[in-house]
Amino acid sequence: MESNTAVSCRNVVKVYDTGGQKVTALNDIDLEIRMGELMMLVGPSGCGKTTLISVIAGILDQDEGSCEVFGKNLLTLRNHEKLDFRAKNIGFVFQAYNLLPSLTAAENVSVPLIINGMKRVEAERKASQLLEQVGLGERTASLPSQLSGGQQQRVAIARALVHDPRLIVCDEPTSALDHETGHTVMELLKDVALHKDRVLVIVTHDARIFNFADRIAAMDDGHILKVVNSAAQL
């Protein structure tokens, strides 16, 4: 494996079994994601995008094939090793932000640090610094309910970044936002979050943000149709 490969999926199959009805969400997926790139997963609803980033992020086990993230085969890790791997290496950004509603912005951002064992005061100090970087220096003490959608998503991005993970997975980070706000969020991800030792995998429907991608993997029906370098090639 070349040293600049961050994620390597081989023949990944995932079948959901809901009461006898089997749905093949991932059907023989091969995918390489390189260090330092912003990879987008695109495709129609139900094609398996969310399932794939769940496998890559180590929160869902595939049924067949292997998925190596930074050289580690997640399937072979023991439970606590996997938790530890996620805590240190993965940042999450969700469509619905998923901030803890009774925690302030700074407290929300500090959660990954606390999970990694940092003291609260130190963690919140670091979180506040990062909030400043994403333009929310004034809102560190606000509750999520007191923030706009775009602001909440920026808090969520700060939370995904704060522990300096090597992989950030985002599921539809802009779908709940208007075009302009979505654009700001993408700029933030591209400019602040992305650097040469980090990978961003972003699932999206939103064609208006395709041009932020370094590469785009087009999916359909559990397959990767093609991986292209720009939206024009789709």
Partner: peptide, 13 residues
Amino acid sequence: LRQFGVLKAMGTS
């Protein structure tokens, strides 16, 4: 539950 799920995804045992 979703909050617990988020904590779990982020690596809480």
